[in-house]
């Protein structure tokens, strides 16, 4: 799949209204830096299970519960590290053929 549509990105945490919202802001910053068109939504782990995103981002304690939800899963511990997230996303997007 190429990038012919905006990517659906989920940021996840336990409740879906605090940490994942912070991570959403960081993810939007990282995706913008990558020049990738994306729609980012924050949610809790249970709600995430009912969705079909392209990308899931969260802490290990949550992404490990969603192993097969998306073609790309990124596990990070620092939700404010946009540069680190950008690097991780670039690597995975390139492997998917979503970035050159």
């Amino acid at each position: 799949m190429g990038l012919d549509r905006p990517l659906e990105v989920l940021t996840v945490c336990g409740v879906g209204m605090g940490s994942s919202l912070m991570l959403k802001m960081t993810a939007e910053q990282a995706l913008q830096a990558l020049g990738v068109d994306a729609r980012v939504e924050c949610t809790d782990v249970s709600t995430a299970r009912g969705k079909q995103p392209d990308v899931v981002i969260g802490q290990d304690m949550h992404t490990s519960e969603l192993p097969d939800l998306a073609p790309v899963t990124v596990t990070i511990s620092d939700f404010l590290d946009a540069a680190g997230l950008e690097t991780a996303l670039r690597e995975k997007f390139t492997a998917q053929g979503w970035l050159p």
Binding site: V15, M17, S19, M22, L23, Q59, M61, H62, D78, L80
Partner: peptide
């Protein structure tokens, strides 16, 4: 209770916790 039920994920960066409930 949010932490005891959902774990310490509210620690969202080095040394920083985001405290909240519903």
């Amino acid at each position: 209770r949010m932490v005891t039920e959902h774990g310490p994920y509210i620690v969202l960066g080095p040394g920083l916790a985001l405290v909240h409930a519903r």
